[in-house]
Simulated scan of single mutants.
Amino acid sequence: MAKIRIKDIAQQAGVSVGTVDRVLHNRGEVAKKTKNKILEIAKANNYQPNLIARALKSKKESVFVSLLPTPTQDDIFWKKPLNGINDAASEHEQFQVAVENFFFEYNNNQDFINQTEAILAINPSGVIFSPIFTKESLKFTQQLAKEGIPYVFMESKLKDSNYLAYVGSDAYQGGRVAANIIDFGLQKNDDILIVNMAKNLENVLHLNKRTQGFLSYFMDKGKNEGLKINLEISSSDSKQIKNRLDSVLKTNKNIKAIFTTGSKAYKLAKYLQKENLNNIILIGFDPIEQNIKYLNNGAINFLIGQHPYQQGFKAFKKLYDHVILNHEITKDEILPFDIINQECINLYQF
């Protein structure tokens, strides 16, 4: 059935197009009998207003804000969701929507706080951010709620908040996926090293959740019964990584696998190659350029992909659909994991 137009409703109701427009968009007084007749015709024909055209007529520009860690050579992962956000913004700029990107130094919670204050000062129409620091992010969500600013999480989410939507993977389940892969490659009594590159793991939401998921797998169903050794490294500095790994691996020769909860598996792979520790399974997250290099030469065995570009792109779309089009949206959009090894990396779509 062809989509009904305002002109068609006017003809069926025997009124002018202007009268139908006033009723459908609540722009003026219309006799109750006429109004009811127009609404009944619209409902019977499943009339949907052209919201995109309405957005084009809007005189006020909506400004969305993103808040992400600064993409650096060490944290190149964050370029992908940023590109997704910016590409989505470019596609919608004709609808009077703009995006401003704010950045904070990874592992620097005070810098995160400073950026949230700057964001609140400009009173944006919506916010996209990754709640890396649990306490600070929760406070930020409370401030956004107070100002009536909708926000969308990506990469991880805070359950104790009234977020508009979440786009990303399940961090806890990601840890279980990694555990399942490692479990296939180990003997029953082999030990496993879990490496978190974070200053305060308990306050770094996504890494903490992955660690919990990893350990839960072995409590539930894992065949491996060896030690699960947690190692926190507060910096990605190569010297510090070497010192910390030396102290663990050279005193525990039974460690046969390493799981790192973030995207810097290449830092560990570089160490393992230099120390000729080629018999240790290494698994981490994200097919960034540095990780792919070590995946291809065999130092990294598996990477878990979580579609960061799509996270950014879809997060922007969630805000757009809610703020501009007033659409109902799916609250949680959980993206699948990709298990990537040397055999399939050339086929992987980034």
Score class of each variant (00 low, 15 high):
Gln110Asn: 08
Ala171Ile: 14
Lys33Glu: 15
Ala89Arg: 13
Asn230Phe: 07
Arg210Met: 15
Ala55Asp: 03
Asp170Ser: 10
Val30Met: 09
Gly14Thr: 05
Ile292Cys: 09
Phe313Glu: 01
His206Asn: 06
Lys80Leu: 05
Lys242Thr: 12
Lys264Ser: 12
His327Glu: 09
Asn114Met: 10
Gln187Cys: 15
Tyr266Leu: 08
Lys57Val: 02
Arg27Ala: 06
Lys317Thr: 07
Arg176Gln: 13
Phe104Glu: 07
Gly284Met: 06
Thr261Cys: 06
Phe259His: 02
Ser125Met: 02
Tyr151Asn: 08
Leu277Met: 11
Phe285Ala: 09
Leu39His: 01
Gly305Ala: 08
Ile258Ala: 04
Lys274Thr: 14
Asn326Thr: 12
Ile345Glu: 03
Val30Pro: 01
Tyr47Val: 06
Leu231Arg: 14
Glu225Ala: 10
Asp246His: 13
Asp338Asn: 11
Asp74Met: 13
Gly305Gln: 02
Ser130Asn: 11
Lys267Ser: 06
Asp220Glu: 13
Ala198Met: 11
Ala198Trp: 14
Pro308Asp: 02
Gly18Asn: 14
Asn101Gly: 04
Gln11Gly: 01
Lys267Val: 10
Leu201His: 06
Ile300Met: 03
Thr19Met: 06
Ala171Arg: 03
Ile283Cys: 08
Ser58Pro: 02
Val20Leu: 05
Lys157Met: 07
Glu40Thr: 04
Lys199Gly: 10
Ser16Asn: 10
Asn180Met: 14
Leu207Trp: 14
Ala98Asp: 12
Leu51Glu: 08
Ile122His: 03
Ile292Thr: 03
Val167Phe: 08
Glu136Met: 07
Asn46Phe: 12
Ser234Thr: 07
Glu155Leu: 15
Ile9Pro: 00
Ser234Gly: 05
Ser62Tyr: 00
Gln115Pro: 03
Pro124Val: 00
Asn83Ala: 12
Gln73Asp: 15
Leu249Asp: 03
Leu186Lys: 04
Thr141Asn: 04
Asn208Ile: 06
Ile258Phe: 14
Leu193Pro: 01
Phe64Pro: 00
Tyr309Lys: 11
Asn83Gly: 04
Ile229Gln: 09
Leu249Ser: 08
Asn45Glu: 14
Gln48Trp: 08
Asn36Gly: 05
Ala165Glu: 07
Glu333Gly: 03
Ile149Pro: 00
Glu117Asp: 13
Tyr271Cys: 04
Ser216Lys: 00
Ile128Val: 13
Tyr106Trp: 04
Thr211His: 08
Gly312Lys: 10
Lys223Ile: 09
Asn346Ile: 08
Lys59Trp: 03
Leu201Pro: 02
Ile258His: 11
Val99Thr: 11
Ala118Trp: 07
Lys135Leu: 15
Gln94Cys: 10
Thr260Val: 13
Gly126Thr: 00
Ile300Cys: 06
Val195Pro: 01
Glu93Asn: 15
Asp74Arg: 10
Asp332Cys: 07
Asn278Trp: 11
Gln73Asn: 14
Glu29Cys: 12
Ser156Leu: 05
His92Ile: 04
Pro69Ser: 05
Asn83Glu: 02
Lys146Ala: 05
Gly298Lys: 13
Phe184Lys: 15
Leu282His: 08
